[in-house]
Design a protein around this nucleic acid. Structure first.
Lengths: 343, 343
DNA sequence: CGGCCGCATGCAATCGATTACATTGCTCCC
DNA sequence: GGGAGCAATGTAATCGATTGCATGCGGCCG
């Protein structure tokens, strides 16, 4: 009977309510511009027909898609998926859809992102990937279509982009100082990926703390790692090859810290008995790991929330570009059992 | 100069190539229907103008969005985010965008999903959530618009839906049997959420194994849990209140197993010394946890890949609904240190 | 009383593609 | 030689909403 009947359009509603489609459209988007009486008739007609807006048609006419694109370096990393979660929440509340683009794949991430905007699939972009550099960003923006953009991974100094960040550098300094305060003097760092802004800033924070405590800087105590557990494992193997080892490590994040600790344990080196390790992020696993991991807690949820809100505000506001806003969030030291006072 | 210039349309290309828009459209989508010469002129014009398709306009006309929707119970769970990753990969290759809907939030998840289709934002749905029941699913489909759907969490018996599943029941039986083979006779189960198909099937598998080994079934050894670590912690507290405790646990998944083990450790009960625990999923963390977790490995990547492929095949094929296809994938027992032979 | 204003509404163009149908010109075959 | 058949292309309708520009009408003011 009613199967495959085409979904009702604004035309149907107009017919039922005995008004023009223009009036229906107005009644739905700016009710105050329509008399109370017809408004009532129209909403009755909407009920009756079961009308819902065809978003595609609106997009075509208004040149907006009510969709934002989130570019993520690696969805599988819980850190990002939690931010993504917060972004989706906020977007849903405000009537936006969320498209995802996982950048690990494909050549030319920039091309892929541009494509979304050139084809009018998304109105704006939340960028979580610290590996894209400014020049590439400008390229995205440079295409005929300017791309409303919020960077939500790391501040890019003096940039013209809106930004939501945590205090990576200061927080890294704080984490390292925590190790120093526990009496450690031989401190290493498990580095993040190359050419990644976040990694760069965390390294700076680490170095700053070492310097200001007048500790000697050992380049061989900088371990090549990354944000993933297996990269933490790799760093551990590099560590094991050393003769002269540090007694404490500041790891780029919790995942790599976990990989690191677990690999060392397999080699008979126990954390925190033989080595103290502090991570970054405070993933849920951090508190359940053995040993529970000291770490810098990032306000992930807030980060995602603010990023989405900032982008949508901008999209719906007057797009005053004059000032790029920067919202900075603070991380917090969480002390757990993985860092131990030197005897 | 060239700023804010409107992006080129198919009209512009047509003008440059001195043909009609119809010809341009044909040249781009079905090149063989256009003479070689004009095809060349057109592709030159495309280059010149920098034309890219306006996906919105196409969507409106063709009534397809080239977008799929992925409904996820909890993005933050690595298990799902890994599947999502695989879905996105496959979709990107085939030219589809991926919208996400995190179902934890909001009233009436079904309403939310319907909304996406009623508004023509997505062409099809991959459902990862085992908590929606069939009646609700039918509701999604029952709206005027039929919703192409692939269920990728659990088979729904005799259902009319396309499905990609792992063998939850058999695998759970296998996991439990693993504990039995190690000599355990006092075995409990850390349950999943109520009204969740996956959880139901894993429980059945567990019970089946217990029965077929002629072990006594202890209802008080079924612990209320869920898929999250904190729910594993809750289950551990329930465990601690028992006088008469099991010596082995089959947990609904790795995350809850981790929460469980970590809470017990805090109470002085060590895994595997005092209790053996096996999980499900083989998350990356499972192998790095202390102790490394025995578990049933699910082919997550394949699962996501197959689900996306099946959906897109269906969308692009002749939509032969006559037979709902079911693709079943096998899980694999991974033995690690968290399960120990009874002395 | 006449003109102006503003409210509520309608008419029709518009967004940018796709596609049914029409047209043209050519080949081929009886 | 005439018509069928086909390939290449054009014309214009169409998808479903939004919105600039009328239009009609009533009220208010000088």
């Amino acid at each position: 009977m009613d199967q495959r009947r085409k979904p009702p359009t604004i035309q149907d509603v107009a017919r039922f309510a005995r008004v023009s489609t223009a009036t229906v459209s107005r009644a739905l988007s700016r009710p105050e511009r329509v008399s109370e009486e017809t408004r009532a008739r129209i909403s009755e007609a909407v009920q009756l027909t079961g009308y819902t807006l065809n978003q595609t048609a609106r997009s075509l006419r208004q040149r907006t898609s009510n969709t934002i694109l989130v570019a993520i370096p690696d969805i599988r990393n819980s850190f990002f998926s939690e931010i993504l979660d917060a972004i989706e929440r906020e977007a849903a509340i405000r009537g936006y859809g969320v498209l995802i683009a996982n950048l690990l794949i494909g050549e030319e991430p920039v091309k892929r992102l541009q494509q979304y905007f050139l084809s009018h699939r998304a109105d704006g972009l939340v960028l979580l990937d610290g590996t894209i550099d400014i020049k590439q960003l400008r390229e995205i923006t440079a295409a005929n279509v300017p791309v409303p953009l919020v960077i939500a991974c790391e501040a890019i100094p003096n940039s013209e982009f809106h930004t939501v960040v945590t205090d990576n550098e200061t927080a890294s300094e704080r984490a390292t100082r925590h190790l120093i305060e526990l009496g450690h003097t031989r401190i290493g760092h498990l580095k993040g990926p190359k050419n990644n802004i976040i990694a760069d800033h965390r390294l700076s924070g680490f170095t700053a703390a070492i310097k200001s405590a007048d500790l000697e800087f050992h380049p061989e105590w900088l371990f090549d790692g990354g944000f993933r557990m297996d990269e933490g494992v790799g760093a551990a193997e590099q560590f094991l090859r050393l003769e002269d080892r540090p007694t404490a490590i500041f790891a780029i994040n919790d995942e790599s810290a976990i990989g690191f600790v677990s690999r060392l344990r397999a080699a008979g080196i126990e954390c925190p008995r033989d080595i103290s390790v502090i991570g970054f992020d405070d993933l849920e696993i951090a508190s359940h790991f053995a040993p529970p991991l000291s770490t810098m807690r990032q306000p992930r949820e807030e980060l995602g929330h603010m990023a989405a809100a900032a982008l949508i505000d901008y999209l719906e506001g007057d797009r005053d570009d004059s000032k790029a806003k920067t919202i900075a969030l603070r991380s917090e030291l969480i002390e757990r059992a993985s860092t131990l006072r030197v005897q």
